[in-house]
Structures are given as C-alpha cells and as structure tokens.
Amino acid sequence: MPHVSLSYKWQRKLLIFGFLLVPVTLVTVFGVYPTLQLLRLSFTAWNGYLPDMPWVGFANYRNVLTNPEIFTIFGHNAVYFVWGLFQNVVGLFFAVLLNSRIRGRNVYRMLLFLPFIMNGTAVAFMFNYLYHSQVGSLNALLSLFASEPVKISWLGRPELVNHSLAFVGFWKNVGFNMVIYLAALQSIPSDIVEAAKMDGANRLQLLRSITLPSIVKVIELNLFLTVIGALEAFELPFLLTKGGPLGSSETFVTKTVDTAFEFANFGLASSMSVVLILIVAVVLLAQRLVIRRWDS
C-alpha cells in the first residue's frame, strides 16, 4: 500500500477541521437550527399541537409592536435593570475592599459568593418565607422597631413586588460580580499602582484614573450580563408570584411563556422571542458605544 504524504498546509487544515467538527456541529444543531425554527414559527399561527402551521406573515409582529400591554411589561424589567446596576456598584465596592489587606478577607469573599452557588429554586422559596406578610421574618424584624406589628405584603402590593423580586436577584448575584471584579483588580500591574501612590495619588484618584480604566472591559462584561438578566428575568416571578398580583410582576419572558403554553399561541410567542432578541442586540450595541466612548 503506497504511503500518502500530506503537506504541512493540508495537515494543518485537517487538524483544524478535526478540532472544529464537533463544536461546530453542536452549535449548529442546538443553536443555529433552533434559531431558524424560531424565526420560521414567528410567521405562523401554530398552536403547538396540530401539524398545520398557517402562514400569517408579519401579523404576529404587528400584534407585538402595536400592543401597549406587552411593552408596558418592560417597565417591570426596568426594575431588575436598576437593581442590577446597583448590584454592580456594590460588587465593585466589595471587590475593592476585599482586594486590600484586611484580616479574614477570604472568609468574607466566601460568604459573599455563597448565595450565588445556591439553588435558585431554594433561594426563591426561602425568600417566599422571608416576605410572608403574616409569619415572615422580614416583617418580624421590622416589628421590633415599630410601635405595632408590621404586616406588609411584600409580594402582594404592585408597587413593591418587582423591587422585592429584584432584591432576591441582587442578594444572590452580587457575590458573582464581586468575584469577577476582584479577578480584574488583581490583574492590574502593581508597579503602576505603586508609582501612582509615590506621586501622591489618593484612593479616589487611584480608582478614577487607574482602577476603573484598567477594568473597563470587565465592567462591560458585567453590564452585558446585567442587561441580559434584566430583560430575561423569569425564574423569580414564575416561582414566587406567577406574574401577580394582577399581572404587576409579569416580565417579558413570563408573558412569552404564558402566550405559548397557556394560550397555545406559539407563533405569537415566537415573534415575541425574536423581538426580545432584537431589543437585547440594540441595547447591547448602545452599551458598547457608550463604553467605547468612555474608554477612549
């Protein structure tokens, strides 16, 4: 049998092809194909059960874009976004604090990061007890400082429910932001910091002129995750309130899921998902432009 000798160029191509074959296949099967199917379903009136998929063109998108109720729900998502920004500020604060030489800093890091590794469902049910209007520990704590027992319905009042839910996400994820920022802070060359200190820079000047510009890419990453988390908030309102009271805690994703599985309108739900993807892309593009201008 003759020996086949391949050139270095072909060996390199075959090696690259071999390494990329499996991941590209997985991305295509579980990423590209479902996305194309979602786009196709968004132009139909499929109910999720029958094989017939009546083609309705852009009717679903007109329904989404002209329905004020759907876009009012983004006001609920905005609450998660505001708490997410606060979460980034607090995470950065703890990262800067615990990056200094204080006693027991590893213990504090562990305690702050511990909620992030807890099961989300367990956290939801824990806060369901905490927020209970009759036997909740939060009301019991507030009652110690009040002249009469406090009976606030944290998950039953429209003006409080979204803030209560967003605080759960803040409590669970602030440790994750802290760890990301802490890793970024530890990557800053120490000689630059020491040179700035020798020039007389105080802590605020170090933060403004060295720390923040050095970790701007990490800030952008955390803001990216914040935007995604705020626009795709689902787990907490689904587990704790089911969108109540009177739809005041519905998010865009919970509305999409209800449209598909409760009202059997998978075509409209698919178009809502596509609209959400486009909104996320636009918001992230705007964020990228702002971060780039600040970085420059």
Rank of each mutant, 00 (worst) to 15 (best):
T211W: 04
A281E: 05
I228V: 11
T226A: 12
T256L: 11
T256Y: 02
E250R: 12
S273K: 01
A264V: 15
L225M: 05
S249G: 04
K217G: 13
A281D: 03
A230K: 12
V257T: 08
I228S: 08
T251C: 01
L239C: 06
L225V: 00
F238Q: 12
V253N: 03
F252T: 11
L240G: 11
T259C: 09
L212V: 15
V282E: 02
T254A: 11
S249F: 04
S273H: 00
N265K: 14
I277D: 07
L276F: 04
F261R: 00
A230Q: 11
F238D: 09
T211P: 09
I228D: 04
V216W: 14
S209R: 14
I215E: 06
S271G: 08
V227E: 08
A264I: 15
L239P: 02
L246F: 12
S273Q: 03
G247D: 01
L276R: 02
I210V: 15
A260T: 09
E232G: 09
T226E: 05
G247Y: 03
N265W: 08
F266L: 15
P237T: 12
T256I: 09
N222D: 07
N222F: 02
E232P: 00
I215H: 02
I277C: 13
V218T: 12
G244Y: 01
I279L: 12
N222W: 00
P213L: 15
L212K: 10
L239K: 01
I277Y: 11
V257Q: 04
F224P: 08
M272V: 01
A264D: 15
T226K: 06
S249A: 06
V227Y: 06
A260Q: 06
V275I: 07
G244T: 00
G267L: 05
K242I: 11
V218Q: 06
V253R: 03
I210W: 06
